[in-house]
Design a protein around this nucleic acid. Structure first.
Lengths: 220, 220
DNA sequence: TCATAGATACTGTGATCACAGTTATCTTAT
DNA sequence: ATAAGATAACTGTGATCACAGTATCTATGA
């Protein structure tokens, strides 16, 4: 697996951050479904940790709205209404667009190379029907574009929004039979970036980003 | 004091969230300065809580980048470089601008009324040299505009960015003698909103938002 | 048969202790 | 007087227990 490739938070030093990273990944790959409850003790047992690191990880994710937690009730993966999901995708598209526009002005050859390799991996995973790997690499693709803008603030917020759309993307992908619209979309984005066409890059990323939005569309 | 007026997180049910809210407020009002260390035990003692709720609050704030925490070292208020601060203000301006643009299309009479009252309170606090109250109400002013856009995702992110610029605004305000540029600025924003002029509202908010930016400017 | 009350097995939250790494201070040797 | 080294006072982290709400399931009533 490619799990280790994902560069999440710096603090791999403590258990709490381990749990945090692993849960984040599970949100992206669709291992956690909308509405699914997460019990501290159950997870602690599963990871062979004590309850302490797990609860801190859950609280942390909840503070980022990647999970929800009511008082004295189990934490859950948010089960958004169509309207809420739509708003989420809206903001994500805005931030991804902004990232892409800046990225296009700073793009290097190695960047294009890396994005192409990711696109290939995704194609591979797709043909193998490995949706988990596919989704993970899709995250890496988008995440890399955020990072190209070289604004850590922007990058982190865009990543957060991606995580939160994760369970919805994972769900949406299954209804997608085997048309590979995404491949054309990503190729177009890479091309626009490599040509430093910032306007086009923004436009295409915004479209790609709201690819999932249309599945839950009810107009903002 | 107006502290209770600030609508932070829903969970006022547990101690952890209490600490969280209070620290957020302190970031806004300039009670916490850039680089200042925050000790779990010290705070626990100060609030007469155990260490547990405090540590969770600190971790939560750290997860939002409102604080920083290295391994086994005290949590601290981020001490940003000029460049980092500048990038922070950049993203904040972008999100505030987007909020204002949407808000202008949805504005109601009561909104204008409320914003005007806030502006008056700020003027009052300013003349009394009560910078703490001034800064708190300035947050409420901006925060209310985020909320007008009726997109909770956008709202929360914009608030987060405001919190993070808090200590810098507080520091910048002291160098501002007694010119009341902010008053003209806010009056202009209110006017643009009340006329539903979304383009102008965005422009003015962006300017007001980067008001602090120029203090630390080094070009993005 | 269905509804309702009660018991039981969950849930997160808070307190407290032990531990290990970091920082600061003070002493000692050069 | 200055620098280096030991020691003491910090720091966050993790484990474990007690507690109080919440949900679920079962038994008992009509």
């Amino acid at each position: 697996m490619v799990v280790q490739n994902i560069k999440f938070h710096p603090n791999s030093s403590n258990l709490s951050s381990n749990v945090y990273s692993q849960l984040r990944l599970k949100l992206i790959t669709g291992d956690l479904k909308p509405g699914e409850p997460l019990s501290i003790r159950r997870l602690a047992n599963e990871y062979n940790y004590s309850a302490m690191p797990v609860r801190e990880a859950l609280r942390q994710l909840a503070s980022e709205d990647a999970l929800v937690g009511a008082a004295k009730k189990a934490y859950r993966v948010p089960d958004l209404s169509s309207e809420e999901a739509s708003k989420l995708f809206y903001v994500r598209a805005a931030l991804e667009g902004a990232s892409a526009e800046i990225a296009a002005k700073k793009v290097l050859k190695k960047d294009v190379k890396y994005l192409k390799s990711l696109s290939l991996s995704m194609d591979f995973a797709w043909k193998k029907n490995d949706s988990s790997s596919f989704l993970e690499q899709n995250f890496l693709f988008h995440s890399y574009i955020y990072s190209m803008a070289q604004n850590p603030v922007l990058e982190r917020m865009a990543e957060n929004l991606y995580i939160r759309t994760g369970p919805w993307l994972a769900q949406g992908i299954k209804n997608l039979s085997n048309s590979n619209v995404w491949e054309k979309s990503h190729d177009g984005i890479i091309k626009a970036l490599s040509e430093k066409n910032s306007v086009l890059a923004r436009k295409l990323i915004e479209e790609d980003s709201s690819w999932g939005k249309q599945l839950y569309q009810t107009d903002v």
